[in-house]
Amino acid sequence: MKQFQYVRPATQQGVLDVINKPGTKIIAGGTNLVDLMKRGVTAPDKLVDINQLPLKTIAATKTGLHIGALALNSVVSENAVVADKHPLLAMALKAGASPQLRNMATVGGNMMQRTRCGYFYDVTMPCNKRAPGTGCGAIEGINRMHAIFGASPQCIAVHPSDMCVALAALDATVIVAGKKGERRLPFTEFHRLPGDHPELDNHLAKDELITGVEIPDNNFAKNSYYLKIRDRQSYAFALVSVAAALDIENGTIKDARLAMGGVAHKPWRLFDAEKSLIGKKATEENFEHAAQLAMRGAKGYGNNSFKLKLAPATIAEALKHAAGLV
C-alpha cells in the first residue's frame, strides 16, 4: 500500500470541501476500502475520515425512520425500533459479513462497498470496473457468483450487500449532501447497472456525501423474511438472497415488496412479481408464480446458470417464510 495523507475534518462542510479532489476517498468503517487498498485495487492519495461527523442517529421521523450514514451495521441490526418496525433490515444486516465487521461497517459504507468479483480484486486480471477498457474477465471465465440480471457485455459483477437488498425492498430514500445542498433519491435508483460504465457503481457524485437513509413506515413488520443462500451457513457472500415483505390481511396480500441480492450490479427489485401478488392469497402456488415472473430477462453465463433455478426457488422460499407458511 502506498503512503497517503490522512485528514479528519471536523465538520460536514469540511468534508465536502475536500472530497471532490482527484485521488481522494472517504473512509468510514474501512472494512472494504482498506481491503481494496491492500490489494492495490484502489490507491488513494488522501483519505478523509468522516467518523467524527454527527451522522450516527437512528430516529423516527413523521413518515418513517431515519438512519444516519455512520450508524454501524451492528447497531442498526440491534436497534429496537428497527427490530420492531423493519425486521427485514435487521435480518439482512445480520446475514452479512461477521459480527466484527458489522461493528466497523457503516450504513453509508455498506452502500458504497464494491463488488467481490475475483477479477476486480486481482490487479493482474482484466476488469472493466477496475481498469476500464481491459475487458471483463468474468464473462467467459469463472462466473459462479455473477449477475443474471441487468449485466452488460462490459461487466457481469454483482453488488455484494445484504443490507442494500432490504433497503431496496423497503422503498428507502437515500439522503445525500453536496455543495449545493441536500438531495434525496430513491434507494432503488442509488445503485446503477454497469452498461458501458461499469467503473461507476452508483449515482453518487464525486463531491457528494451520503448522510443517511429513510425508511417509510409500512405494514410489513409481521411478514418479512430475508433468505440468503450461500456456500456455507455464515460469513459468506450470497449466491442468491431474497428480501420478502408482505402486508397480509385475512390471508390476502394487500401489498408486497421483493428484492434480490447476488444477481445484479445493484439490489434487484422485483416489481412485476410484487404486483402479481397484490390481491392474491398467500399461497405456495401464488408465490411460485411470482417467482417465475421475477425471472423474466434473466440470463446465465455458464458457471452461474444455476441461479436461473436457484433464484426463483429462493424467492418462493422467502415468501413462504414471510407468510409464515414454513
Binding site: R116, G118, Y121, D231, R232, Q233, S234, Y235, A236, F237
Partner: peptide, 12 residues
C-alpha cells in the same frame, strides 16, 4: 483468499 475459498465456520 478466505472470503472466496470457503472453509467451515462455526455455524456449519
Amino acid at each position: 483468499n478466505f472470503a472466496d475459498y470457503h472453509v467451515p465456520v462455526n455455524a456449519d
